[in-house]
């Protein structure tokens, strides 16, 4: 890979992405169109996040990649290796040691700090897309701040199920203006989006959109007075580290359907175990 530029992308492409990131930061929650490039990994596998990471990384950064909260899932491994090769950056699995974290579907449990950047991989950046498939229409709706359709959808859930039936990619309103898709994180993670000390950048490669949340931005999950937003998780402690406040993966451990629950954030769980915390399933 030595024939490629630092962090793979050519400088002109990086400038284009960097300009989009700056406009994204200036208009929190607004989706900035960008001329996403064809990357050497498939669309839908993190090309947006990879392009954003490539545009923000410096050789001195320490980079962490998680998928489903874990550092060792195959696609996380693949993206981490890509940047080790093309940017020569240090990588880590320890959340607090990372200056740039690329993620798919989770926000780390450990609160992030001011020196950090969280880059999300986004499949469908448009929160209104499943209500209105046309980009030309949804763009108009954002410009007119016309979000009635979203509220109608959420309210239909309530009348049918008694609850809002959206459990991930739960829409948020940013600074009272743009409705934004937080990427398919579980709604458990939604409260971490607002007032975060780190910079949050969202990259959707196939859909050619970049958006951003500056630090300490007001982010509110959509809800109703009589049905307030609730960040839920499986009602169990982690079987390995005993944490009661972390998001859990459910594992099927035998063929009679026996289950256990383990932190989806592998670094968080390992750090707790090292510190001596023990769950009921730990050795």
């Amino acid at each position: 890979m030595t024939d490629y530029n630092f962090a793979y992308l050519d400088e002109q492409t990086k400038r284009m992405i960097r300009r989009a990131i700056l406009k994204g930061l200036a208009i929190p929650g607004y989706q900035v169109p960008f001329a996403s490039r064809e990357m050497p990994m498939p669309y839908g596998w993190g090309t947006g996040g990879v392009q954003v990471s490539a545009a923000v990384l410096t050789p001195e950064d320490t980079f962490k990649v998680i998928d489903q909260g874990a550092d060792d899932t195959t696609n996380a491994v693949s993206i981490r290796t890509f940047f080790e090769r093309t940017a020569g950056v240090e990588t880590t699995t320890t959340t607090c040691d990372a200056s740039v974290i690329q993620t798919r579907h989770r926000i780390p449990e450990e609160p992030l700090s001011e020196g950090q950047i969280l880059v999300y991989q986004v499949p469908i950046p448009e929160p209104l897309r499943f209500l209105e498939p046309r980009e030309s229409e949804t763009r108009k709706m954002h410009s007119l701040e016309e979000y009635g359709l979203m509220h109608v959808k959420l309210y239909e859930d309530i009348s049918r199920h008694g609850h809002i039936a959206t459990s991930y990619a739960y829409p948020v309103k940013v600074e009272g203006r743009y409705v934004m898709d937080p990427s398919p994180i579980p709604k458990f993670d939604n409260p971490k989006l607002g007032d975060m000390a780190a910079i949050q950048l969202f990259g959707a490669g196939r859909e050619q959109r970049i958006y951003a949340l500056p630090p300490y931005t007001q982010v509110v999950s959509l809800d109703f007075e009589d049905h307030p937003f609730e960040a839920s998780k499986a009602d169990h402690p982690c079987g390995m580290c005993g944490a009661i406040d972390s998001y859990l993966d459910e594992l099927i451990i035998d063929d009679t359907g026996g289950r256990m629950f383990v932190c989806s954030d592998t670094d968080f769980c390992e750090a707790r175990q090292l510190a001596g915390h023990k769950g009921k399933d730990a050795a």
């Binding site: 700056l22 923000v56 990384l57 050789p59």
Partner: peptide
């Protein structure tokens, strides 16, 4: 060294715009 220097400069600009 355009790749590295512009990466550093961009981080300064981005931090400034974000904060």
């Amino acid at each position: 060294d355009p790749a590295t220097q512009s990466a550093h400069a961009f981080r300064s600009i981005m931090e400034a715009m974000a904060r």
